[in-house]
C-alpha cells in the first residue's frame, strides 16, 4: 500500500494505491487519522485502490468519526465500481461525500468553508 500525503492549500490530499484490506488498513488508519485535526479538510483519493475489504471500511468509519468529532470534512474520490457498490449496500455512502475526480473533490472542499 502506497500512501502519499500532499497539502493543496487548505486541503490535505491523501492518495492511496494498492489493496485496502486487513493487512494494510491499520497502517493507513494510523497515518490518516492523525490528519483529522480540528476543522481539517481531507480528500481521500482512492483511484489507485482496486479492492477494499471490510477492514478498509472500518478504517473509513474511524476516519469519519474522527473528522466529524473535530468538525472537519472528508471527501472520497475515485471509488472503483465494486467499492462504490459495497459502500452503497453497507450504508457508508450516506456518511461520505464522494466525487469522481480529484478536481471536483477539491472544489467541494474549497467551496464548503
Amino acid at each position: 500500500m502506497d500512501i502519499t500525503i500532499n497539502k493543496l492549500q487548505a486541503v490535505t490530499v491523501v492518495e492511496l494505491a494498492g489493496d485496502l484490506d486487513a493487512n494494510t488498513a491499520s497502517e493507513v488508519q494510523q497515518k490518516v487519522i492523525s490528519l483529522a485535526t480540528p476543522s481539517s479538510k481531507i480528500l481521500l483519493d482512492l483511484h489507485g485502490v482496486k479492492y477494499m475489504s471490510s477492514a478498509g471500511l472500518r478504517m473509513l468509519l474511524s476516519l469519519y468519526r474522527h473528522v466529524t468529532a473535530n468538525k472537519g470534512q472528508v471527501v472520497l474520490v475515485g471509488l472503483a465500481p465494486q467499492i462504490y457498490k459495497t459502500m452503497s449496500i453497507t450504508g457508508f455512502l450516506n456518511f461520505f461525500t464522494t466525487c469522481e475526480t480529484l478536481e471536483s473533490g477539491l472544489a467541494v472542499l474549497q467551496q464548503k468553508s
Partner: peptide, 14 residues
C-alpha cells in the same frame, strides 16, 4: 432481499 439499512454499529440512532 436487498439491504434495508446500514451495517450495524456504525453510529447510534440509524
Amino acid at each position: 432481499l436487498n439491504s434495508t439499512g446500514p451495517a450495524l454499529g456504525l453510529l447510534p440512532n440509524l
